[in-house]
Nucleic acid binder design. Structure first.
Lengths: 325, 325
DNA sequence: CTGAAAGCGCTTACAG
DNA sequence: CTGAAAGCGCTTACAG
C-alpha cells in the first residue's frame, strides 16, 4: 500500500506538503503543487493510514458505542441514531455488543480505550458499571440510563419512574382492576425505577390488584414467563412491560394461548421502538427520545471541556390498540 | 496516559522488555523482570496503545462488518454472530451501518481501509458493490450474498433460488391457488433469485394464479404495500415474502384489515430470524445458516492465503402457523 | 509557499 | 536474558 512518502516522491515534493494537502492545512499549498500531489495520490491510489494519523495527531475522530444486545430493536435503532449523530460530527462510530455479559462489556471497554476512541456511549448491562478505566484514561463516557452521580461519567436519561407511573395510570384509567408488571431480571436501577413508578400509580388508586414477574430482557424468555403467568387462575387483566422487546414476547404468548389483546389482556410496552407500531396488535408504549439521546450524547462527547452532564430528557406515552385504545 | 516508556523506567528496564512481557514474546523474559514490569504497569494503569501497536506490527487484529440496516433483526443477529466468531479468533469487530445508502457504504469501506482492518465482511445494499478499493489495498472481502464471480471477493451464500422455490412449493402444497410474491425494491440479484425460484414453483403447478409486488426492505413500507394489495378484489390467498422484516409488515397489515393469518391469507417469510418465532402468528420462514455464515466468513478472512472462496451453504425451511401448518 | 526533522508509542531484528 | 536503535506512516512546529 502506497504511503505519503511515495506520493511526495512522485509529486516531487515533501511528505509535509502531502499532509497539508490532505488535511487542508495547517499551512497553505500553492494551487500548482496541490494539483501535482492530488494527481500523484490518485495515480497511486493513496489512502492515508488512519492509525499513523491518529498516533501522530493525538486524536482518532472515533467514538465507541456499547449496547447490551444489538439484536434488540431498541438498541438497533439507537445504534443507527448514534451513528448518524457521530457521522454528522465527523466521527466514526465503533459499535460493540456486550451480549448481556458484564465481562464482555469490560473487554469492550478495554478495547475501546486501547484504540483511544475520543469518547464512549454506554448502555451498560450492569447496575453499577465499572467505568473507572476510561475515566482514568481521560476518555469521556456518557451513559444512556440512570447513573449514580458519584460515577465518573455523564448520563442522559428519561424519568423512568414517572414514565412508568404514567403508563400504569393509563391502564388504570381504562378501568382494569388487576394489573401486572413485567420487568427485567435483576434488582437493577432500571427495574427498580420501573417498579417504583408502577407501584406509585397502583397505590394511588384504591382497589387495584397488582402482581409482578421478572424475565430476561429477551422476547423468548418474556414469552415463557408470560405463558405461565397468563394461565394462572387470577391472571392480570392488563400488563405493564418494562421493554418493547419483552412486550413482543407477551403478545406472542397471549396469542398462543388464544387470548385476545386487548379484549382478554391489555399490554403496554416501553422504549417506543419503530417495531412497536407493527406489532399485532399495534403496541402502546413509552417513547424514548432516541434521536435526542443520540444527538446529545455525541455533543457531550465532542465537547468534553464542558465537563460532566446529567440530563433528563422528555418521554412520550404513545397509545395504540394493545391497551384498549 | 502512561506509555511503555513510563512502565520501563519504573521497572528499571527497557521498552523492548515491556513489549516482550505484554506480547509474551518474541523473546523470553526472566520471571523477576516480568514481575517488575507487570507491577509497574498495574501501578501506572498502563494500557498499550493499540494504534501504535498496529502501526508498528503491521496488523490491527480487527475486522469490519458492513450491513445495510442494523435495525433489521436479521442483520442484528448476523452482527452478533459475526462478533462472536471474530472474538473467537482474537479479532475486534467494527460494525458499520450503511442505512440502505450506497454512498454511505462506500464511505464505510474507505474508512475501514484507512483503519487497515484485516478483512471486511460485507452485506451490500448494491447489486454490484464497488469493492475494487479494498482489493487494491490488499484487504480481503467476503460478501454474504450472491456475488459476480468476476468481483475480487469471496462469497458465502445460500441457494436463494432453490430456497424460494421450496417455500413457494410449500404454499402450493397447502392447496392455495392464488399466490403472491413480495420482494425487495429494485431488480437486484437477490430479488431476481427470489422471483426466479418463486416463478419456477408456480409454473410447475398448473392452475396457480400468481402476482408480484415490491416494497422497500422495511416493515413500514411492506405494511403499506400489503395494505393496498390485500384490499384488491383478487387479493392473493398466500404470500411469499423475501425477508422476515417485510413479512412482519405483511402480518401487521393483515391484522389491521381484520384478515386472519393463515385463515384468510397465509404468509411465508425469509431469513429465519429469532423474531420470526414470536410473530403473531408464528412465522414460517426459510432459515439462513447465520452461525455458519459468520464462522466461515471469519475463517476465510483470517486465512486469506487460502485465496478466494465461493461457497453455497445449506438453508432450512421452517414451517410454523402463518402458512397454515 | 516549502522542506528537513522530531515525535507519536509501539515492535523487532540485532548485538551483546 | 536484556537494551539501544531503527522503523511503522503520519503531523507539525520550526526555519528558510
Amino acid at each position: 500500500m502506497p504511503t505519503g512518502r511515495d506520493v511526495a516522491e512522485r509529486a516531487g515534493t515533501s511528505t509535509a506538503v502531502v499532509s497539508y494537502v490532505f488535511n487542508n492545512g495547517p499551512r497553505n499549498v500553492s494551487a500548482a503543487t496541490r494539483e501535482r500531489v492530488l494527481k500523484a495520490a490518485a495515480e497511486l491510489n493513496y489512502r492515508p493510514n488512519a492509525l499513523a494519523r491518529a498516533l501522530s495527531a493525538g486524536r482518532t475522530l472515533s467514538v465507541g458505542l456499547i449496547v447490551p444486545d444489538i439484536a434488540n430493536p431498541y438498541f438497533g435503532e439507537l445504534a443507527r441514531a448514534v451513528e448518524d449523530a457521530a457521522t454528522g460530527h465527523g466521527r466514526l462510530l465503533l459499535i460493540a455488543n456486550s451480549a448481556g455479559d458484564e465481562d464482555q462489556e469490560q473487554r469492550h471497554l478495554t478495547s475501546l480505550i486501547e484504540r483511544r476512541v475520543d469518547g464512549i456511549v454506554l448502555v451498560s448491562v450492569s447496575d453499577a458499571p465499572r467505568i473507572a478505566a476510561p475515566a482514568e484514561a481521560g476518555i469521556p463516557v456518557v451513559a444512556l440510563h440512570p447513573l449514580d452521580l458519584e460515577q465518573p461519567a455523564s448520563s442522559l436519561t428519561i424519568d423512568y419512574d414517572r414514565a412508568a407511573e404514567e403508563a400504569t395510570k393509563h391502564l388504570i384509567d381504562h378501568g382494569y382492576t388487576s394489573i401486572g408488571a413485567l420487568t427485567g431480571p435483576s434488582d437493577s436501577a432500571g427495574s427498580r425505577q420501573h417498579l417504583a413508578g408502577f407501584t406509585r400509580a397502583i397505590l394511588r388508586q384504591p382497589g387495584i390488584r397488582s402482581s409482578h414477574r421478572r424475565s430476561e430482557t429477551s422476547r423468548a424468555d418474556a414469552a415463557a414467563v408470560a405463558r405461565a403467568w397468563l394461565q394462572e387462575p387470577d391472571r392480570p387483566r392488563a400488563i405493564y412491560v418494562a421493554t418493547d422487546e419483552q412486550a413482543f414476547g407477551v403478545l406472542s404468548a397471549a396469542a398462543e394461548l388464544g387470548l385476545a389483546v386487548p379484549a382478554d389482556v391489555a399490554v403496554v410496552g416501553f422504549d417506543g421502538t419503530a417495531h412497536s407500531r407493527y406489532a399485532v396488535p399495534p403496541l402502546s408504549t413509552v417513547r424514548q427520545p432516541i434521536e435526542m439521546l443520540a444527538t446529545r450524547a455525541i455533543e457531550v462527547l465532542t465537547a468534553p471541556e464542558a465537563g460532566q452532564v446529567h440530563e433528563t430528557l422528555p418521554h412520550h406515552f404513545q397509545a395504540r390498540a394493545s391497551c384498549g385504545c
